[in-house]
Design a protein around this nucleic acid. Structure first.
Length: 611
DNA sequence: ACTGTCAACT
């Protein structure tokens, strides 16, 4: 493949693909589909008359002269004539619609060639969009074949394939786009960043990190000139997958390519660190901020928003407020996102007065609270089980001209489920439908979780069927909920079976999945099985997180194996993981039980948290 | 023509 991309187009076309003469390929569908017609030439007089009608756009008259049988012949004729390709395109669409037929694929691509030569790129884009949307019957294999036999215009073919790729991505057919990318490599077509960047971006959004990494390597190998956006998308994909080290490597790659990291690159990296559960993650984020400034890249509103949200999620609202002040000192204006992050931070902490104060402040600045603002406030009240207040905000939204979205409903439904108010939750779900909002898989997950919490796995199963009847597939979270439910019932065998089912249907277990299963085994006292799950998890490239350690440490404590618990505790600290509230509670409880009075927080025998 | 920040559920 590498050789081929270096070949001159002319050489390429002497290769194996140019298998039969062009005309034969084009006439084949026509000859086989119609036995009464003798040959295209016998129509030629007639056809020049018809072409003339097309040129004059006399469609009604044209229709009276046409039969199904000569539609494709006329198209062929138009393609070989001097007729404006845009007119031919019009005829193409008109004849397909009027006579409900599909012209052969080869002719479609000959038409695209003519349009490309005439530089009518927007027409090609529209054509391909339509093609992707309504003609699912063509596989990439037949498309590439048709394209390769319809003319030796190598560059033009590359442009068309590039646009095809973009059409796939824009129509959410990312996997087909990826397949087309691979095939383009086999055929040696040159692609551009204008299609590869959106493909990368779509893969990042789908969380297909493996594909992102592969595509990135391919881009470099095929020498498709990446730009700063290409690198930024890849950095973002790796950050979202928690692969911060690899993200850093890509930043080094880009420097080696002579592309300087810009404000977006740094913002992405900072956000990556902010969202990671490492010790001193905000310190690391701050270090990147300093590096960014040292490289003469000026932080913008987004940079500050990321830091503010990071501190809020780190339960450090006061640090967030300092950044907020610094932002304004730098002459940057806080926007709705800034306020939403702060409001969310305050709400999660139950500081509703401060949160409402900020809401009023933003109103004073002419910033309108949006759905996100309300969702944060509602979620805050829900967490404190203040359902009346949550409900009031929900009702207020309408008066403010704001429509609740699926997340608003999910928040409320989940809160009702957690309060055991399943009927209310289902009423909310149906009111969602009345508003024209379709419940998402996450909506069902809230309800399924509620049923499982009640121990009603049977109803949960039934609800999954309803969900699937509505075209939604059980996702990772659904499986996590069910695995947890079985573990709680002491049915770890069933949980384990579900675990293998989810892999079979192509879902990738995450930390929660592994931790849940481990927790199930630990509760049963089966430490060996739990440690096996952990081994599997680390083999899958997922390092143990705080929750993993908490589960295992607790498991070992319960079995009286304090030595093992200590080993894990040390390992956790060595790996730079921060013990949380739960860790301290596990340790304290264990010590009390053994008659020790915990003097300093976090001492488990000879192990100190504050090492 | 393409990119990055905020909100829910396990």
């Amino acid at each position: 493949m590498h050789r081929r991309s270096k070949l001159f187009p002319g050489n390429f076309w002497q290769g194996e693909l140019f298998v039969f003469p062009r005309n034969q390929a084009i006439l084949r569908p026509f000859c086989s589909s119609d036995s009464t017609t003798t040959s295209p030439t016998s129509h030629s007089l007639n056809i020049s008359f018809l072409s003339d009608l097309v040129s004059k756009q006399h469609w009604t008259e044209l229709k009276t002269h046409l039969k199904d049988t000569n539609l494709t012949v006329l198209l062929h004729q138009l393609l070989s004539s001097e007729v404006d390709p845009v007119l031919t395109l019009r005829y193409f669409h008109w004849s397909q619609k009027e006579f409900k037929l599909s012209h052969p694929l080869e002719l479609s691509f000959r038409l695209l060639h003519l349009l490309a030569n005439a530089k009518r790129y927007s027409k090609i884009r529209a054509f391909l969009d339509n093609f992707i949307k309504y003609e699912n019957l063509h596989s990439n294999s037949s498309i590439f074949h048709a394209l390769s036999i319809c003319g030796p215009k190598f560059c033009v073919n590359s442009i068309i394939v590039d646009m095809l790729l973009l059409a796939y991505v824009r129509n959410s057919k990312t996997q087909l786009g990826l397949e087309a990318f691979k095939r383009a490599g086999d055929y040696g077509f040159r692609l551009s960043v204008f299609s590869c960047n959106p493909l990368l971006s779509a893969l990042v959004k789908e969380g297909a990190t493996g594909d992102v990494e592969h595509l990135y390597k391919e881009l470099m190998r095929r020498k498709i000139e990446p730009n700063v956006i290409t690198f930024n998308v890849v950095v973002n994909g790796l950050c979202k997958a928690g692969k911060l080290n690899k993200a850093g490597d890509v930043v080094e790659d880009m420097k080696a390519w002579g592309v300087s990291p810009n404000v977006v690159t740094y913002n992405t990296l900072i956000d990556g660190y902010c969202k990671m559960g490492r010790v001193g993650k905000m310190y690391k984020a701050d270090a990147i901020l300093k590096e960014m400034v040292a490289n003469k890249v000026c932080p913008n509103e987004v940079t500050y928003n990321i830091l503010i949200d990071g501190f809020c999620k780190d339960e450090n609202v006061s640090a967030a407020k300092k950044v907020f002040e610094e932002m304004q000192r730098q002459g940057l204006k806080p926007n709705v996102v800034t306020y939403n992050s702060l409001i969310n931070g305050l709400c999660s902490d139950g500081k509703f007065d401060d949160a409402f104060g900020l809401r009023d402040e933003m109103l004073g600045l002419g910033l309108k609270p949006n759905v996100v603002t309300y969702n944060a406030l509602i979620s805050g009240f829900c967490k404190k089980k203040m359902m009346r207040e949550a409900r009031k905000l929900f009702d207020d939204m309408r008066g403010k001209g704001l429509a609740p979205n699926a997340i608003t409903f999910n928040t409320l439904i989940d809160a009702h489920c957690k309060s055991g108010l399943m009927e209310e939750a289902f009423v909310l779900q149906s009111s969602m439908l009345k508003k024209g909002l379709f419940p998402l898989a996450s909506t069902y997950n809230c309800l399924i979780g509620g049923l499982c919490r009640k121990g009603d796995i049977e109803s949960a199963r039934k609800l999954i069927h309803v969900m699937e009847d509505n075209g939604l597939r059980a996702d990772l979270v659904t499986y996590n909920i069910l695995i947890d439910a079985f573990c709680r019932e002491g049915e770890s065998r069933k949980a384990a079976r579900l675990f293998s089912v989810m892999r079979k249907v192509g879902l990738t277990p995450n930390h929660v999945t592994y931790n849940t299963l481990m927790n199930g085994y630990c509760t049963e006292g089966n430490l060996k099985a739990a440690m096996n799950v952990r081994m599997q998890m680390e083999k899958d490239g997922r390092r143990s997180n705080v929750v993993t350690y908490n589960i295992l440490i607790k498991g070992f404590c319960k079995k009286g194996k304090l030595k093992d618990a200590n080993v894990l505790l040390n390992e956790m600290l060595e790996r730079g993981l921060n013990p949380n509230q739960t860790t301290y509670e596990i340790v304290r409880e264990e010590m009390m039980e053994r008659g020790f009075v915990p003097d300093i927080e976090g001492h488990l025998y000879n192990v100190s948290f504050s090492s």
